[in-house]
Simulated scan of single mutants.
Amino acid sequence: MISTIFITGFNINSQNSSVILCKLYIYIGFFFSTLFPTVLILASIDRLLISSQNVDTRLYSSRRLAYLSISINTCFWMIFLFHVLIKSNIFRLSPGVYLCYFENNYVDFVSYSSLVINCIVCGTMIILSIFSFKNVRHIRAIPIRQLRTQLRIMTKKNFQLLRCLFAHDIIYIIFSISINIYYVYDAATKKQTRTSLRQAIESFSLNFLSFLHNIPYCASFFIFIVVSKAFRTELKRIIYKIFGKNIMAIREEDNRQENVVDVVNTIVPIV
């Protein structure tokens, strides 16, 4: 996201002047763009485990397992994407014009592999979300007395976190698949002669789709603000703490006002 701001917004292309910066720019971009959906999948698996009807299955939802899974996947993608460091380089397009990109015979592999990986990721998110949603519906159908006797059943914050995760998955699926389709289109039509109008349209489409592709990576804060009441309360507490206000006094005042409203609503007028 930051690199896109510098390149598209301020026309700063430092990666085109240094081979090391070029390789790091592409490698880091591919790494984080792949790691983010991987974390979403791991979070979806965690929500699926904690929403399970089986007590033993719910116990697998632990912080230790989460750290281990993230570490393993991080190492895997670092090794898997190492080929990007080898195949990326700076190429001369015209006198004084250089571009940090892949070799011509390697663009097809990167485009198609990115599309396949993205389709697998999106499909996995959809499947996990469906199963989690089914588990939640089953939990809501269980009587409250039976829920209290179960171990590590989902709390209100768990439900809010699950809704936030659903929103994350939906936003990622919508905004990420389009850029990969464009890359496949570009790889399939790279040998065709392009007119000036077509080049302008493709350049605009690439910039616009790149902007959409970056939305899921910076939407977490807004998703939690809109969906999670607990997050809004915690954010309010932090803001009040920064400005030196007492959050407990404000909560007591809010509760007092709510109690007054409840009492007023329960008063029956005397005829």
Results as ranks from 00 to 15, higher is better:
residue 84 V to R: 07
residue 66 A to C: 10
residue 141 A to F: 13
residue 88 S to W: 12
residue 68 L to P: 04
residue 159 F to N: 04
residue 116 V to S: 02
residue 59 L to R: 15
residue 65 L to I: 12
residue 98 Y to S: 07
residue 75 C to A: 13
residue 115 L to R: 00
residue 127 I to S: 03
residue 142 I to L: 12
residue 93 L to Q: 11
residue 143 P to I: 13
residue 107 V to M: 04
residue 58 R to V: 09
residue 73 N to I: 07
residue 77 W to T: 04
residue 56 D to Y: 06
residue 150 Q to E: 07
residue 155 T to S: 12
residue 123 G to R: 06
residue 69 S to R: 07
residue 55 V to R: 04
residue 82 F to E: 11
residue 93 L to H: 03
residue 70 I to K: 08
residue 121 V to K: 01
residue 79 I to W: 12
residue 139 I to F: 11
residue 124 T to L: 08
residue 99 L to A: 07
residue 112 Y to Q: 05
residue 150 Q to N: 00
residue 107 V to E: 14
residue 93 L to C: 09
residue 57 T to N: 12
residue 66 A to T: 12
residue 89 N to Y: 08
residue 70 I to E: 03
residue 146 Q to M: 09
residue 101 Y to F: 02
residue 150 Q to G: 00
residue 124 T to H: 02
residue 136 V to M: 08
residue 121 V to F: 01
residue 116 V to A: 11
residue 60 Y to C: 08
residue 135 N to G: 04
residue 138 H to K: 15
residue 55 V to S: 14
residue 116 V to K: 00
residue 134 K to T: 05
residue 99 L to Q: 00
residue 59 L to F: 15
residue 78 M to E: 08
residue 151 L to Q: 11
residue 110 V to P: 04
residue 88 S to K: 04
residue 94 S to T: 01
residue 87 K to A: 01
residue 137 R to E: 13
residue 85 L to N: 02
residue 63 R to A: 11
residue 151 L to W: 05
residue 106 Y to E: 03
residue 111 S to H: 01
residue 99 L to P: 02
residue 95 P to V: 06
residue 159 F to A: 05
residue 141 A to S: 15
residue 58 R to M: 11
residue 75 C to F: 15
residue 132 S to G: 13
residue 104 N to K: 10
residue 149 T to Y: 07
residue 135 N to I: 03
residue 97 V to K: 08
residue 118 N to C: 14
residue 101 Y to Q: 09
residue 156 K to N: 03
residue 158 N to M: 02
residue 138 H to T: 15
residue 106 Y to Q: 12
residue 100 C to V: 03
residue 81 L to D: 00
residue 79 I to L: 10
residue 83 H to Q: 10
residue 65 L to R: 14
residue 63 R to M: 11
residue 124 T to P: 00
residue 138 H to D: 13
residue 162 L to I: 01
residue 134 K to Y: 10
residue 142 I to F: 04
residue 66 A to W: 04
residue 75 C to Y: 15
residue 154 M to A: 06
residue 58 R to A: 10
residue 160 Q to G: 02
residue 119 C to S: 15
residue 143 P to W: 13
residue 129 S to K: 02
residue 100 C to P: 00
residue 129 S to W: 01
residue 140 R to N: 09
residue 56 D to L: 11
residue 72 I to F: 15
residue 90 I to Y: 03
residue 137 R to D: 14
residue 142 I to D: 14
residue 109 F to G: 04
residue 84 V to E: 08
residue 161 L to I: 02
residue 101 Y to W: 04
residue 82 F to N: 13
residue 87 K to E: 12
residue 81 L to V: 02
residue 81 L to S: 05
residue 97 V to N: 06
residue 148 R to L: 15
residue 108 D to E: 06
residue 151 L to T: 09
residue 62 S to C: 06
residue 162 L to G: 06
residue 105 N to A: 02
residue 146 Q to W: 02
